[in-house]
Design a protein around this nucleic acid. Sequence first.
DNA 1: GGAACGATTGAT
DNA 2: TCAATCGTTCCT
Length: 199
Amino acid sequence: MFQKVSLPYKPLPRYFYTLPTCTLARNLLGCYLFHKTAEGTVVGKIVETEAYLENDPASHSYKGQTKRNAVMFGRPGHAYIYFTYGMHYCFNVVTQPQGIGEAILIRALQPIKGIEIMKKRRHISEVAKLCNGPAKLALAFAIGKEHNALDLSKGNLLICLPYKKELFGIQQLTRIGITKGAELPYRFFIANNPYVSKR
DNA sequence: GGAACGATTGAT
DNA sequence: TCAATCGTTCCT
């Protein structure tokens, strides 16, 4: 009687979030982040990610579970948002089954939709600089601590598969802004994409 | 209770 | 290269 209408974008299947964290960090490239707010909907394409593993000295989860990092050890496919440097929020995707503390930091997005809203929130007009850093995209997407632990496969904050398969090269290099584990090549980004963060 | 330290950013 | 700015963690 009722036919389910297929949406152009579908949330990532749950099992994706239990793939090895570095594998998912690659696979997230080209996926889309949606945030529906009262101001309107903003959409961005994920172009840069960093993996943080449990046996990784740079990871918040390295020394075990605390109140702050508890979400990292929780259900896969949920948001882990932390506050840092006294002024910035960063957005991560929790990976691995419950009990394993791993996550992927979303470092940069290519703005797709709602660009005027992003400009207003960031107080700048240069599109290439709206989301080319983890704290920048959190601000452009109005992501804060109230989104910590939210399910990314339903609700207003969503990660979806690309509508159409897109071909691009992937580069894998060391992560940015860390001292411990600095030699590990856990940063992934779309080659030659102008929206990737700068050193 | 207190000190040190950031998965950053923007200005100098 | 450096300051801003404050929650979390770790030490006493």
